[in-house]
Amino acid sequence: MATVRLAPVLRAAAGGAKQVSAQGNTLAEVLADLYRQYPALKEQIQPEEELSRFVNVYVNDQDVRYLQGLQTAVGPNDTVILLPAMAGGGQE
């Protein structure tokens, strides 16, 4: 099973866990297993068919946008990192 590391903002949806395990041979399969275990994560990570553009997803520290996206291969010893993009800035 792959290790899925969750950013602090996502942990409440996974019972407070910093990381969880999910299985699959592609990122899409790993995420489907993750959503089966923690349904509340789906809305934050992948509300539509594609990944939210506000979430950065890495497999072994490589951004999946520069790999094969949801079809990126994931092995049992791989690490998937989910990092929602942070909006910032203030008013002047």
Rank of each mutant, 00 (worst) to 15 (best):
G24I: 03
L10D: 07
L31A: 05
V55G: 02
A13D: 14
F54S: 06
G89H: 04
K18Q: 15
T26Y: 05
K42H: 08
T3F: 05
A85L: 14
Q37S: 13
L6W: 11
D61G: 01
V64S: 06
T3N: 09
G75E: 04
E50H: 00
P84W: 01
V57K: 01
A87K: 11
Q19W: 09
E29D: 13
Q46S: 07
A32M: 05
N25D: 15
L41Y: 10
G15S: 11
P39S: 10
L67H: 06
L10C: 09
L51A: 01
A73H: 06
I81W: 02
Q23R: 13
Q19A: 14
Q68M: 10
A2D: 03
G90M: 12
E49R: 12
E48H: 14
G15E: 11
Q62K: 13
K42A: 14
R65V: 03
D78N: 05
V57S: 02
N25L: 12
E49H: 12
D63L: 07
Q44R: 15
E43Q: 15
V64M: 07
I45G: 01
A32T: 13
N25P: 00
A40M: 02
G69I: 00
A87H: 10
F54K: 04
P47H: 10
T72V: 11
Q68G: 00
Q23S: 13
L41H: 09
G24C: 07
A12L: 09
V9L: 13
P84Q: 04
K42Q: 15
A17H: 04
P47Q: 11
A73T: 08
E29A: 14
E49N: 12
V55P: 03
L34M: 11
G75Q: 07
G90I: 12
R5Y: 11
E29H: 06
Q19G: 08
G75D: 00
V55I: 13
G69S: 00
G69W: 02
L27K: 04
Y38D: 02
L34E: 07
A14F: 07
L67V: 01
V74N: 02
Q71E: 14
L34S: 05
R65H: 07
L70C: 10
G90C: 13
A7M: 05
L82D: 04
P47L: 10
E49D: 14
A40E: 12
D78Q: 06
Q44A: 13
G24M: 08
Q71C: 02
L27E: 01
T79G: 06
Q91S: 14
T3R: 14
L67K: 09
L34W: 08
E48A: 15
R36T: 14
A87W: 03
L31D: 10
Q62V: 12
E50N: 11
V74C: 01
R36I: 05
A28H: 10
S52R: 13
V30H: 10
G75F: 01
Q68Y: 05
